[in-house]
Nucleic acid binder design. Sequence first.
DNA 1: TGCAGAAATTAGGTTTGACTAACTTTATTC
DNA 2: GAATAAAGTTAGTCAAACCTAATTTCTGCA
Lengths: 145, 145
Amino acid sequence: MPARNSAPARSQAVEDYLERILDLISTKGYARVVDIAGSLKISQASVTNMVQRLDAEGLLNYEKYRGLVLTKAGETLARNITRRHELLSDFLKLLGLDDEVIYHDVEGMEHHISPPTLRAIEALTAQLQRHPALLAKVRKEIDER
Amino acid sequence: MPARNSAPARSQAVEDYLERILDLISTKGYARVVDIAGSLKISQASVTNMVQRLDAEGLLNYEKYRGLVLTKAGETLARNITRRHELLSDFLKLLGLDDEVIYHDVEGMEHHISPPTLRAIEALTAQLQRHPALLAKVRKEIDER
DNA sequence: TGCAGAAATTAGGTTTGACTAACTTTATTC
DNA sequence: GAATAAAGTTAGTCAAACCTAATTTCTGCA
């Protein structure tokens, strides 16, 4: 079977790595192997592996023992992934869900939301924010279960 | 009250199989290996494998060369999975998304939606149905992109 | 400056869930 | 009722991502 010519490229794992790397760089100024491993709760060995792959795929520049920087392509991708994550979190937050539930669900579902669906959720979120009364009803209905 | 053995059991793959098996049984009256394989677009060999595993996990009863039936536990699980799938589809449909987009996104995200989030989306869907004006605005905003 | 500890890498292994190829069982058809 | 076709099974592979253990490189400080 065709196991993808040469670039499986955008797997869930890849997206998770890019998201964390961008987050680490934004907050700490850099993303070392040990930081990424800690943040994703996986071993340093696994991170080294993936980082080498992301370098090969042109999503970041990596020098052994030296560290890494996102390429333009990697950064753009990471920003889109982050934006998607935030929009989804905002939407669920609006519905009154607990932070832990939001975190867990978004972490899983974010990789499967296509651009049209994301746009729709974005538009819906905006409308809902303008209709607190309706939102209140939704939250009430949820609580009454 | 039979507690779950100790198996990891509920992977995405398991959920997909159960969903299709219930669907086949509902529409055709039975679910043969060849049907499941065709429906999930995977090989018959893979289906045989998984079906043996689901039998071992008590989600269905399976006899070599003879066929399979969902157990009570398996059917309950399959129904919950199906319900979740339908609620998500209904929600996205309401936002005016294309059927193909809906199918694709739901297929991916359904496995990651927890019960609280599902309840919230259900409540939101119900409210939106009562507010066509707001819904119209959302759809309009989406189209204007 | 040299050495101990932290960080990173390599090597080799596991698990999940797919695959193909070859074989067996069941069903159909003449 | 035997030959052939369809369905199902087994055996052996593979790839993605993870792991641990062992090794190498780097860094800070006495």
